[in-house]
């Protein structure tokens, strides 16, 4: 219920959306734990609401759900500390997807220059696979996971597949990253639930 009264987020120090250091404020030495958590929530709300305002203007209805889900995960990653491996893994996926999109657009442009008439969209564009949030990037998947460390329980393997970037982590790092990822996921779910409640009452 308090989520509906989300206080205005602080203005980020750098308006450049690609800067991931804006979440570093939450790790300032002077911050207490509560203050750090509040700052992170404000940053999370800022990133997600800004993405929502852009989606509203630019995105056709059929693609909106997918775009909102991607905005949710990239907002989580941007609001998190840049030292977190799961955050860097998610942002790496965002950049990889963006570069693939740009390459496809460049291919279409080249084709249009060669042919006088406008060319139809390449068939490969339809077959693009969505990278799920819990799925590791292609580069990480190419590397075989490290052999199970001493004392690592069998269930840790499933956890590695769910936490972004988990494939390459030591067991102890995996546990730390999982805890931080869980906190961010819960905060994101609370934020989105609050927005749904807010919009539903109009």
């Amino acid at each position: 219920m308090d989520a509906k009264r989300t206080p205005p987020p602080p203005t980020p120090p750098n308006p450049n959306p690609s800067v991931i250091g804006s979440g570093a404020a939450a790790d300032g030495g002077g911050f207490g734990r509560g203050e750090a958590a509040a700052a992170t929530k404000h940053m999370l709300a800022f990133h997600f609401l800004r993405a929502l305002s852009r989606i509203h203007r630019a995105t056709p209805v059929t693609r909106r759900t997918r775009t909102i889900r991607r905005a949710a995960y990239s907002s989580m990653a941007r609001a998190a500390s840049p030292r977190r491996a799961w955050s860097r893994a998610l942002l790496g996926q965002v950049r990889a997807r963006r570069s693939r999109t740009l390459m496809r657009r460049a291919a279409v442009l080249v084709r249009r220059r060669v042919v006088a008439a406008p060319a139809p969209s390449p068939a490969s564009a339809r077959g693009v696979r969505i990278i799920a949030a819990g799925e590791t990037s292609a580069a990480a998947r190419a590397v075989p996971p490290p052999p199970r460390q001493q004392g690592e329980p069998p269930r840790a393997e499933a956890l590695r597949r769910l936490v972004p970037g988990g494939a390459g982590m030591e067991y102890s790092s995996l546990l730390e990253e999982t805890a931080d990822y869980l906190r961010s996921l819960r905060a994101q779910v609370q934020l989105m639930q609050g927005l749904v409640d807010l919009f539903s009452y109009q």
Binding site: R69, G134, L162, Q193, L195, V196
Partner: peptide
């Protein structure tokens, strides 16, 4: 922990759907 992460992922999916409908 794995089950909890999966349920949170599903909630993000469901809420994305609802937000999309509301924004429409």
């Amino acid at each position: 922990t794995c089950n909890y992460i999966k349920s949170l992922h599903r909630e993000v999916d469901d809420l994305s759907d609802r937000l999309s409908d509301l924004m429409a």
